[in-house]
Amino acid sequence: MPRRKSVREERLLLPHEDVSPQVVQQRAAHMSGLRAQLEPLLLAYSAAESTAGQVMNHVIRRPPAAVARVAGITHTLWACDDDQEIDLLTSGLSRNQALIADGHHRHAACLHLGRQPGSPWKNSLALLVDTNAYPLRLSAIHRVLPGLDPEKAASLAADVARVLSLPDGPRKPGPNELVLVGAGHAWSVTDPEPRALREALASRPREWGALPAAVSDHLLLDTAWAVPDLPGAVRYSHDAQQAVADVAAPGSGTALLLPATTEVRVRELARAGVLMPPKSTSFGPKPAVGLALRVLGPP
Rank of each mutant, 00 (worst) to 15 (best):
M1T: 13
M1Y: 07
R4E: 08
K5S: 14
E9H: 09
R11I: 05
L14I: 01
Q22D: 15
V23H: 14
V23N: 04
A29R: 15
H30I: 06
M31G: 02
S32K: 07
S32C: 01
L34W: 06
L38M: 12
P40A: 14
P40Q: 13
L41P: 08
L42G: 08
L43C: 03
A44Y: 11
Y45M: 04
G53A: 03
V59E: 03
V59F: 05
R61S: 07
R62P: 01
P63D: 15
P64C: 12
V67F: 00
A71H: 14
A71M: 10
L77A: 14
W78L: 01
D81S: 13
Q84Y: 06
E85I: 00
L89A: 02
S91I: 09
L93Y: 07
L93G: 04
S94I: 09
Q97N: 05
Q97E: 15
A98S: 15
A98I: 02
L99Q: 11
G103R: 01
G103K: 02
H105M: 07
R106Q: 13
R106E: 04
A109C: 09
H112W: 12
G118M: 10
S119N: 14
S124I: 15
L125N: 11
L125R: 09
L127T: 12
L127C: 14
L128A: 13
D130M: 07
D130A: 14
T131Q: 10
A133W: 05
Y134F: 13
L138A: 10
V144Q: 09
P146C: 07
P146M: 02
G147I: 10
D149F: 01
E151T: 12
K152C: 07
A158E: 13
A158H: 09
V160N: 03
R162L: 15
V163G: 05
L164Q: 12
S165Y: 00
G169P: 14
R171V: 08
G174V: 02
L178N: 11
G182C: 08
H185Q: 10
A186Q: 01
V189I: 15
R195Y: 00
R195I: 06
R195A: 15
A196N: 02
R198G: 12
E199P: 00
A200I: 09
S203P: 05
P205C: 06
R206W: 04
E207G: 11
E207N: 05
L211F: 03
L211I: 15
A213Q: 11
S216A: 15
L219A: 00
L220I: 12
T223Y: 04
W225I: 10
V227K: 13
V227F: 08
D229N: 09
D229L: 13
L230F: 05
L230G: 00
P231K: 13
A233M: 07
V244Y: 03
A248F: 00
A249C: 01
S252R: 12
G253Y: 01
A255P: 11
L258C: 08
A260Y: 04
T261E: 06
E263C: 06
V264S: 09
L269M: 07
A272G: 01
V274I: 15
V274C: 05
V274A: 00
K279A: 10
S280Q: 11
G284W: 11
P287W: 07
A288L: 06
V289G: 04
V295N: 12
P298V: 09
P299F: 05
